[in-house]
Design a protein around this nucleic acid. Structure first.
Length: 245
RNA sequence: UCCUAACCAUAG
């Protein structure tokens, strides 16, 4: 089963989902029962391609076969529906999940919060943040990155920065990824000085800025027509040993 | 071995 799952993973990664699905019957013939993992990988591939009808079909097939879906199975489906903007379906999945005796976990909430943020439904996203805490789940740096980005997309830079402060207050780790989101939020508002302040903050904390931070800053300057600054940052990235893509 | 977040790239 392990080997077949590896192969299914390989096909899925290449986007060759038909071949991956073909392996399900093949492994069956050879006496290897596909497990939830086998299905999860393929369903995730379909979700990434936004083929939710197919994903739902396979999910149903998994249940019909008597396989027990796990957190990853449900989270994958929820994320898929979120990415397609079909938030209604996520409630159905959540119900199914509870019927299976599974409580939403951190990834479930993060996926949902992302879905609502990307649809501009920030209030509901924040409601989910509260709900998860009521469930004794602590939001992590992913949760906050999603929300910071969500506020940024709505043009609410103050809300975004408030979340940054909240992370500091709560002692939640601010990763390079989170800094990328913050820098992007400021750049999108044309607040280049502040954005570079964040860059300095991360360097001050001993974190290594990555290529994305520089891409973000360079793009911010480019949009404003600040060629000199953009070029300066390009050179700075070289000095830091970052290879531009 | 499987699930969640960011930039350039929903390119006018």
């Amino acid at each position: 089963v392990f080997s077949f799952n590896k192969a299914i993973q390989a096909f899925s990664k290449e986007g060759q989902l038909d071949n991956a699905i073909g392996l399900l019957s093949k492994m069956e013939e050879m006496g290897c029962k596909p497990d939830a993992f086998s299905y999860n990988v393929i369903i995730n591939g379909l979700c990434k391609k936004k083929q939710m009808e197919q994903a739902g079909k396979l999910f149903g097939e998994m249940l019909d076969r008597g396989l027990v879906p796990n957190h990853v199975s449900f989270n994958t489906m929820i994320d898929g529906y979120c990415k397609c903007g079909n938030l209604e379906e996520t409630f159905e999945i959540r119900e199914l999940m509870l019927k299976q005796g599974l409580r939403p976990n951190l990834v479930t909430y993060n996926s949902l919060i992302n879905g609502f943020c990307k649809c501009g439904r920030l209030d509901q996203a924040k409601g989910l943040l509260i709900e998860m805490q009521e469930q004794k789940l602590e939001p992590d740096n992913v949760s906050y990155s999603i929300l910071i980005d969500g506020h940024s997309r709505q043009g609410d830079i103050h809300g975004a920065l408030a979340l940054h402060s909240e992370m500091i207050r709560k002692g939640i780790e601010i990763s390079v990824f989170t800094y990328d989101v913050l820098v992007n939020a400021l750049c999108k508002q044309g607040k280049m000085r502040e954005a570079e302040g964040i860059l300095n903050e991360m360097v001050g904390k001993g974190l290594n800025p990555d290529e994305v931070v520089y891409n973000t800053l360079i793009d911010g300057h480019a949009v404003l027509g600040n060629t000199k600054e953009a070029l300066g940052l390009y050179q700075e990235m070289g000095r830091r040993g970052i290879t531009p893509s």
